[in-house]
Nucleic acid binder design. Structure first.
Lengths: 222, 222
DNA sequence: CGACTTCTTGAACCGAGTCAAGAAGGGTGG
DNA sequence: CCACCCTTCTTGACTCGGTTCAAGAAGTCG
């Protein structure tokens, strides 16, 4: 948290590939490359993520980055104009397939759920330790992906670099790395080449102050 | 952040006075005492704060507390049922006067603004230092209260204890205290007996990575 | 004037950051 | 298929922002 010069090498994700839209095919499916900023030159629109992960992030003028949340396969994403990286913009973390969302049904519910995730995030950042933050987040992913049928035999694909974890959890990359080492040593999880398996979900939930309360109750009401 | 026994003496604000509603007078004005939890046994309702400050907070099972946001005079507050202190509930920080909000006009705008504040809060917690967090927050209060005509000669009333700052900014009370000492020594602010005066708003904004962007632009659109 | 919050301050400790450098992956082109 | 390059992951050593514990001073309210 040196207060001078937070000149991170710009997130590869943002730097290396131009935010270009690629190959729009029939059925109104839009594809983006990893690293693309998802904007709408046109009117605001609502899309559903068919595959891939998106995050919403802000970049401060001195280079510090904060990620606000993730959009997972099956989730919907509201794209509003006039949002740039110094306020908050959606960025593709992987190759993406988006589809225009047909009806607005469930929009209110999606908003509630998103708000609940944001509240949980505030608690993580404000009151949890590094280890708790990491576990808490992985448990959230577990529940969200499970609801979407994307958890198999207790494990799921997790296409995030440690830098992305750092920018989401408000920690440094180095400390994220060390935290993951500890969790592995604990036997809390297995994490390798883009997949995680959590050992004993309930015990971990207790250890990380994770409560499915808000998010999932609201989710079930859908 | 000790991972064991976060047994804070329960926030006086929560402990000392029972969350009782007091003296409902004509014109549908409701009063609460400081420390009251604002619930709705009835249907969800929307109220406008005539005077006093409210916060929304969650209390973890081990006693750690996190405050999500503040509702200032002039702001509206949506009260939904089924929210308790372990998820997120509004609590009166001072004596309060609430009024039933008449029309729903501006409800969408209020929600946008609240979301923008929450995003700023995430940045504070995730990426700013203690000094920056404090300044950033005081600047947000400045702008919000200024818009409500509650800033006089560059200063405003701020009825928050250091404990409340700590629970909002994700820091310890002791460190909040030391941070305020530093800001005073800097000449950044004058803060005494419930009032603040910020020296040179623009310079402080630069120092704290505060940008009125999101919040105020949306605000102005109203 | 008590009694209780709230604010301050000191000292010791530790979680997390920074700097730096090397190892391991993953694409790409020849 | 290998060589090269760039990104991502690891690890060590050191620093520092922030926490904890503790106790005393200053406010506030009945």
């Amino acid at each position: 948290m040196g207060s001078t010069e937070h000149e991170k090498p710009v997130l590869s994700v943002v730097r290396s590939r131009p935010p270009s839209e690629v190959d729009t095919r029939p059925r109104s499916v839009t594809r983006y490359q990893a690293g693309a900023t998802i904007d709408c030159e046109q009117r605001p629109r609502s899309v559903t993520v068919l595959s891939g992960w998106v995050c919403e992030m802000r970049i401060l003028h001195d280079g510090r980055r904060q990620i606000f949340g993730f959009v997972l396969p099956g989730d919907t994403l509201e794209i509003r104009p006039s949002r740039s990286l110094d306020t908050s913009a959606p960025v593709a973390l992987t190759r993406l397939e988006l589809m225009e969302t047909a009806q607005q049904s469930g929009a209110e519910d999606a908003r509630r759920r998103k708000e609940a995730w944001l509240y949980d995030h505030v608690v993580r950042l404000g009151r949890l330790t590094a280890k708790e933050r990491m576990l808490h987040l992985l448990l959230e992913f577990y529940d969200r992906l499970d609801a979407a049928g994307l958890v198999t035999a207790g494990s799921y694909r997790l296409p995030l670099t440690q830098e992305v974890f750092a920018d989401y959890l408000g920690l440094s990359v180095v400390h994220i790395n060390r935290t993951i080492q500890q969790l592995r040593a604990d036997g809390s999880l297995v994490l390798r080449s883009g997949s995680v398996t959590l050992a004993n979900r309930n015990r971990l939930a207790a250890k990380a102050c994770y409560e499915l309360q808000a998010g999932s109750e609201i989710g079930r009401r859908a």
